[in-house]
Structures are given as structure tokens and as C-alpha cells.
Design a binder for these strands. Structure first.
Lengths: 224, 224
DNA sequence: TAAATATGATTGAGCGCTCGCTCAGTTTTT
DNA sequence: AAAAACTGAGCGAGCGCTCAATCATATTTA
């Protein structure tokens, strides 16, 4: 799966031609994504990346300055693609019988398509320098925010009962993570469920929380 | 947090004395867990591990034969501790107002205590040789199975309405992963929620699925 | 009982190799 | 002919792992 780079990056380069930087970095990122998914960040050598990108190691280091730079570019590119895909997907929430069900379906399908990329980020984020790790994690939150907005919008249209803000936020996290779960447990889940079955069951799981009037009325369940 | 080794391992050693192997390997694993959590597997050197364990590198290699062996021992130890803790925790499901709520609470508290270990496994499992990765992933499934059993038992006692087998299995996965979510999003979630608040909201989320009579009756939500 | 011997545990200097990165030099573009 | 883009041989640091030597303790011998 090819991956797009969002903006001119804060990573320095020796090359003057901006478009060239854009093009070469896309080559580098596309090559690196494949290799990282196959062997992981640490087992992949810069020489391999350069070769797969079709340039020399010397030239590679004109476009980045450390190997970690490449990982950062990769994470950014993946998040850009995730964010774009989810944004597009969530615009369709007007169709269908229940808008939240549509949102979940579209989002889960994005997770399905990009599952290798999602797993890659889970696995390699700790190899990033702390400064960039923070940036990548905050990007993750932006995808989450998309969900919070959709939830809020659905509620404001009266199609879901109101929720406390913190319950709403956590619901967004849950949807987000249950999507990721398909990615990193796919090797096991896909033996028992197709992606559509998975979506159906999980949609039921998430929606019933809201469609039967909030709390089940047994609160608190446990005395502490 | 100290970690226990379950059984005599299938990893070869040059040392004859069995108890010594057990003791030394515990030293090695304890040291490695700390270092791996701090710096990750690849950035940690075998020399560091030996030093932290209080032995020489030479001796280290009398007890294991590759660096990956150490990671395998670490993963096994963590899973043994998780499995033990969850088993103990799930035995208390007779108390409380709703047994599933108790199970969720106890399990989430285990995830809370062991969150660094859980994150470690998510991050480093791909550094294991394929053969052992499979073993570790299957151990993960065993924890899941504990949950399926508890669910089935609660249902058989009539305290939850019956579920299709595959819905039940997926519910076990969901509980399991929502526990993990606290571990790998703790840096962010703990700013808004205490572990108890998290447990309360998530319990509500999970239980309402079952306490309002299964499907919300709007099926299917989307026409395909 | 003391010395001699054998066995297992332990040490750490160092080998061999890999990999990130550089830079002197070449080719291409303007 | 100057600037920009590009090449790849090679440097040097670091790492996993080994092995000859040493130490500790049990066992045998005199």
C-alpha cells in the first residue's frame, strides 16, 4: 500500500529542490514501510532501504540525517493516510440506518485495509526519540478526536441519547482500539470471523450501550 | 515488579545444577525485564543484562544461548504472572452484585499493576523467532480462555442471558483488549480517569451489552 | 587427615562482524 | 564553469558471543 506525505517536514535535508525532496522522500518512505513491516525497524539496514528506494546510501543521507528520521517519516505518513481515510469514511455517516453504525463500519474497514501499518506503529513507536514519539502519539489522538466529533454530532441531532463528556471520550477510545484489535489480532480472529462478521458483532456491542438508555441501572455493581 | 518462572524451560543450558539454573535465570529475567521496559530489547546489550543480573557475560551464556532466549524467558515469565494473577482474580467472581463486573474489575486491576509488562509484550513480540512468537501468542489466548470460561459459567448460572459461542468469544477478546488499552494508553487516559473511574465506565460499557436483552433490535444497521 | 585430583561454576579479554554514517570524488543540471 | 545531485568504498564504534584460564567445591587417594 502506498503512503502519502502530508507536508514539508521539519526534518532537515541537504537538497535544495523542494519537489525533489518530496519525491525522493516518498520513495524512501514507501521502501521503508515495506521493509519495516517485514523485518521490523532494527533488523532493517539503511543500505536495504536505500537499495529498495533505488538510490545510494550516500544519497539517502542527503534527505535524512539519522535512521530514526526514516521511522518518523514512516509514522507520519501512515498517520496522514489513516487520518485522511477516516475523515473520508466518517463523512458518510448520513447514510444507513444508524449513523454511528456507519461510522464504525467505515472506520473498521480502514483498520482492515491498513492493519499492517497499524501494527507497525504499535511495535515501533518506542524506537522513536522521545520528542517525536510525542508527536506521533498526538497524531493518534487526532484520529480519536474525529470519532468524538462524530459522536457529538450524532447526539446533537438527537440520534443518540446524551453522554457525559468523559464517557463520550472513552467511547471514542473504545471504538478506536476495537478497530486496532482487528489489526493486531487478525492472525487469530480471521480464522473465526470475516471482517464483516467482526464489524456486525462489534457494532452490536458498541451500540447496545447507547440504545437501551445508558446505564443498565444496576450501578454500582461492586461495593468498594 | 518481580516475575516468576513457571517451569523448567525448553531452553538448553550448560549448567547441571537445576536449582541454580532456576535461580540464575530468575536473576537474568528480572534484570532483563527492567532494562527492556526502559530501553527496549534491541537497545539493551547482553553486557548490560549480565551486569544488572550480577554475573559476567561469559556466565550469562552458560544459561542461555542467544539474546533472543532472554526475551523468550521474559515473555514466558510475564505471561506466567499474568495468568496466575488473572486466575486468582477470577476466583472472586462469587462476590459483588454482578459476577461479571467483579471479573472485569479484578482483571483490569491486574492490567493496571502490570501495564509496563503488557506494553513490553506488545512491543517486543515481533523480535522473537517465529517459533517462539507462536508460543507466546498462544499463551495470550490462554488468558482469553479464562475469560470465556468465566462468561460461560456466569451464563450457565443464569446470571447473564445466553450468547452465541462466537459472540461470547469476542466478548472475552473485548474485555481482554480493553484491559490492555489501559496499559498502552495509560499515559493519556490517566490524565482524565483514575483506574477506578476507568473500570466503572468500561464495566458499564460491557455489561449494558448483555443486560438489556442482547441485540438492540435495530439489526441490520446498514444495508450492504 | 592431608594432599591430589576431578568436576562444575565463573570470569573477562577479545574475535569477528555488522551497521550507521561520512566524504572524496563523479556525473548531471543549469 | 559553477552548482546541485549523486555514488559507494571505507571508517570506526559497538555488539553478540567464545574460550582459555581461574576459582570453588566435591571426591579420591595415600
Amino acid at each position: 500500500m502506498s503512503v502519502t506525505i502530508s507536508k514539508t517536514k521539519d526534518i532537515p535535508t541537504q537538497i535544495k529542490n523542494k519537489e525533489l525532496v518530496e519525491r525522493r522522500r516518498r520513495q524512501i518512505v514507501d521502501a521503508a514501510v515495506e521493509l519495516f513491516m517485514k523485518d521490523g525497524f532494527h533488523k532493517t539496514t539503511t543500505r536495504q532501504i536505500a537499495q529498495a528506494a533505488g538510490i545510494s546510501i550516500g544519497l539517502l543521507y542527503e534527505y535524512i540525517s539519522t535512521k530514526e528520521d526514516i521511522l518518523y517519516l514512516v509514522c507520519e505518513a501512515i498517520h496522514a493516510e489513516m487520518h485522511a481515510a477516516v475523515s473520508v469514511a466518517l463523512e458518510r455517516t448520513e447514510q444507513g440506518i444508524h449513523p454511528l453504525a456507519v461510522a464504525i463500519r467505515e472506520y473498521f474497514l480502514v483498520c482492515h485495509r491498513m492493519s499492517d501499518h497499524i501494527v507497525l506503529i504499535y511495535q515501533e513507536i518506542h524506537s522513536l526519540p522521545a520528542k517525536w514519539r510525542k508527536v506521533v502519539l498526538e497524531n493518534e489522538l487526532k484520529v480519536n478526536a474525529l470519532f468524538s466529533e462524530v459522536l457529538a454530532s450524532i447526539i446533537s441531532r438527537g440520534e443518540l441519547p446524551p453522554l457525559e463528556a468523559r464517557v463520550l471520550t472513552l467511547t471514542a477510545h473504545n471504538i478506536s482500539v476495537l478497530g486496532h484489535m482487528w489489526a493486531f489480532r487478525r492472525w487469530m480472529l480471521s480464522a473465526s470471523y470475516t471482517i464483516n462478521e467482526y464489524i456486525d458483532i462489534q457494532t452490536d456491542f458498541i451500540l447496545s450501550r447507547h440504545l437501551c438508555g445508558g446505564r443498565a441501572g444496576l450501578w454500582p455493581y461492586v461495593s468498594r
